[in-house]
Nucleic acid binder design. Structure first.
Lengths: 219, 219
DNA sequence: CAATGTAGTAATCGACTGATTACAAAGTCA
DNA sequence: TGACTTTGTAATCAGTCGATTACTACATTG
């Protein structure tokens, strides 16, 4: 049922049928994360987002008002996806290794959920770009608010103390950096890079290597 | 003597005197770090760099060939400054707290050297921008190479094992993120942000608060 | 069916930006 | 001094991009 709905949507997209503005917005946001993630806020063009979403450039501008609003909506979407992934991982009641504490198990699940977000193409990179735009009046404020929200999740919902939360976020920032750097492109060719990569993705390595496209998405 | 040399250079700049191309290049690189750091690679303009350096826009382009080459030179400069700061901190023989091991003392000095680089305005942010441009043919390759060089410093020169080096770099990425986010702008106004900030800069807090300009450099 | 609203595009415009050209002024040195 | 090199700018161009306008086609409802 869920499946047939998705297929019906795909068919509608394929056949050039008209969609509700809400569905188009969601579709454009997916494209926006991919494009903003690869090119950054200034480097991305509304035309590129439009082509990736299969609509015309003026329509993107009309649906979101401006490129800036589109970017704000994209990072809002990215943060919502991240937090909902974290909450699902935190609530997960599936049996875990009895040798580790429930807290450790939850931390592992949430870390995994963070890495799994690479499947939403450009999500990590778009957020990282937003975090670098602290000087921008609107984007900087939104980025700080989102960052604080994630911090509060670790402290309040997950129950980490300040040092644990800091270490958790630090690992996350390193992972995001490695994704943005496309270190995966050099994996296997340089032993130093391979070591660095293995150290960052100890358990998820096969998954990461499979999901991250290698040598594509070039400028 | 070193001072008088610097003063002479400042006088020369002040009076609109002509400089050697090498001096101009160094001067433009400082301006480039500030501008690229605040606006990113695509968002920055060669004209803004030129005005910040006190020269005309065509001259910036001619001295570096292209905006792309200017950015590559800027991140090369940033990495050289960072590594020379690290090496100086590692070689520092001043007496340290006898309660901690020499290795711990060296790690503390190097962490301090990293934070001290905020005094070179835009350095951390420019590097972070470069790390996000992994998809760019030239910039991505240079960024990966620089990142690998830093990794090798921690592993080979500093003697950390892979896990320690990873944790060290993770903390560094978090610090860079907080600088790019301008979290300092909200310091004191939001208790959550204040806690986050204190957790990241436990010892250097007064220094960081003093050096990072608050509420300026806006778009 | 007529009327009204909604989804979507083609054409285009004005502002911006990196790069080029042509030129001027200052220094260098035989 | 006069030829040559180096530092530096003014003017401008060609391309790009976000936004606007004006329009068409489909859908919904009374």
């Amino acid at each position: 049922m869920g499946d047939s709905g998705v297929v019906a949507l795909d068919d509608a997209i394929e056949s050039g049928k008209r969609l509700s503005s809400g569905e188009r917005r969601r579709q454009i946001l997916v494209a926006a994360l991919a494009v903003f993630g690869a090119r950054g806020y200034e480097g991305a063009t509304t035309d590129e987002v439009a082509r990736a979403a299969g609509v015309s450039q003026p329509y993107v501008v009309r649906l979101f008002g401006s490129k800036e609003n589109l970017f704000l909506a994209a990072i809002e979407d990215a943060l919502a996806r991240m937090l909902s992934g974290f909450r699902a991982a935190l609530a997960d009641e599936s049996p875990h290794d009895p040798d580790i504490t429930p807290e450790k198990a939850a931390a592992k699940r949430i870390g995994q959920a963070y890495v799994d977000l690479i499947e939403v193409r450009g999500l990590h990179q778009t957020l990282a770009h937003a975090y670098l735009l602290g000087s921008h009046p609107a984007i900087g404020a939104a980025a700080r608010k989102g960052f604080a929200t994630v911090w509060r999740f670790f402290r309040d919902e997950m129950g980490l103390d300040a040092d644990e939360a800091r270490a958790f976020m630090a690992e996350g920032m390193l992972i995001s950096t490695m994704i943005g750097l496309r270190i995966v492109d050099d994996y296997g060719s340089d032993p130093q890079i391979t070591e660095l990569f293995r150290s960052c993705f100890p358990s998820e390595l096969p998954h990461v290597l499979e999901v991250l496209p290698r040598g594509v998405d070039r400028f």
